[in-house]
Design a protein around this nucleic acid. Structure first.
Lengths: 237, 237
DNA sequence: CGTATGATTGAAGGGTCTCAAAATAGGTGG
DNA sequence: CCACCTATTTTGAGACCCTTCAATCATACG
């Protein structure tokens, strides 16, 4: 099922069997993208929204002199641009990191879906608000943490999110990033990202090599990152 | 009308007269708060959402050693915690800056409102997505701009938003902030905020004194801030 | 084997923080 | 209306974190 990971670990259980079928049937075509491809350009009018089925996608904004800032990273089960449904055009760019498979949801289909299934509508809304909650945490991370804390926090968040959709045990996961991508997510330079990674490695907290993250000391990672997963609204608590 | 500023300057014209009346009638009680009062504590279950009618409100998160990071500033016409409708509990704190008046919208009333008026529902969703768009811009600001750019960007955004609801000409507006508040919004220290303000004053770009912002050179302000108001989704363009 | 890309390290400079003190403004009571 | 008290703003000096610029190293790939 294309949407089988949607809200997995995030109160997916609040969806009825009927609603899940309705969501699945609302999916239009499935599109594939290669790695590192631009998927949506900022300013574009969007007429459908993409549910990420397979692969990693990021959203980013560009500064005047070309420096890029990641504003979101998406993993399977995430709606990548559901906010485009209400906003109509995007204020940022969307690109694939890996090879990617997305299910397209035409906006006029979504409109009807929400009318027919108000509870499903609220869960779709909820999913866009999860993005906003993550945005807030990223603001906190950039505003209040030093470089080490930022990188640690990023690892902690992605690990936890992948765990929720069954793609990680929380400590070992794939992250198809270059060090420069990590830098763009954390508001630091690639050179400094490298030094931060060395320190995290030397302190035996986490290693990152070849797109693979291995958390050696999850306790220390969360401490350094000031990480608490509450803002991810996991099902259990 | 309590909701007369809702989405003002942001496609409010997409709301029909009937929908506006329905929104107005959905408002429950009106509550007043004093200046600098905590309004919602993180983790609280929220059963209603507040539309800001008068005054300024901020949302923030606290780090381990008490440093605070603002994640949003709200001006009249903003729904302060509409995201609580779908999230149920908040991941951050909400506090007043000035004396404040809010209109309360009980969540069960909102549920019905959305079923009866799907288009209004989409506009409410839209309004929470505007918050998310601003979050993204804050991420960019913190990740990619230096201290001067961050402060300039903050001024530019608030000026523009106040202009949209008729509370500023874009260059002169009230901002009931201490320098330390500005610091908490921009991820810098209060001491450095002071130095940045001096530089912006000396470069004849903007002055901030006694809670009043006067932009002397809007062109320079936007340049320093790398500011473009597209992410605020203003009606005209 | 040569080339391109990404990772790693070094040295120097700059931006921001910290700590501390002084100046100013605002509010209150005499 | 002045005197005092407190909160806020302003300034200085030194330390530290991160950036910049450059060079070297490792790796993958034609």
């Amino acid at each position: 099922m294309l949407s089988s990971k949607f809200l997995m670990g995030r109160h997916r259980e609040d969806l009825s069997a009927i609603e899940i079928v309705a969501l699945e049937e609302a999916a239009g075509s499935v599109t594939s993208y290669g790695a590192r491809e631009e998927m949506v350009h900022h300013g574009d009018e969007v007429t459908h929204s993409m549910l990420l089925v397979e692969g990693y996608v990021c959203r980013y904004m560009d500064g005047l002199d070309g420096e890029r800032q990641l504003v979101a990273l998406h993993v399977p089960g995430d709606f990548v641009d559901l906010h485009g449904f209400a906003l109509r055009r995007l204020d940022h760019d969307v690109a694939s990191l890996t090879e990617v498979k997305v299910a397209n949801y035409p906006h006029n289909t979504l409109s009807q879906l929400i009318i027919d299934h108000p509870n499903l509508g609220r869960m779709l809304w909820f999913s866009t608000l999860l993005d906003a909650a993550m945005h807030r945490e990223w603001i906190f991370r950039l505003g209040r943490l030093g470089a080490i804390g930022r990188v640690a926090h990023f690892f902690a968040e992605i690990g936890r999110r992948l765990q929720m959709v069954g793609l990680s045990d929380g400590c070992n996961f794939s992250l198809p990033f270059h060090q420069s991508d990590l830098a763009e997510a954390c508001g630091i330079t690639a050179v400094h990202a490298n030094r931060v990674l060395r320190e995290l490695r030397e302190r035996k907290i986490v290693t990152f090599k070849g797109g693979q993250v291995v958390v050696a000391d999850i306790r220390a990672l969360c401490t350094v990152a000031e990480f608490d997963d509450g803002y991810l609204y996991p099902s259990a608590h």
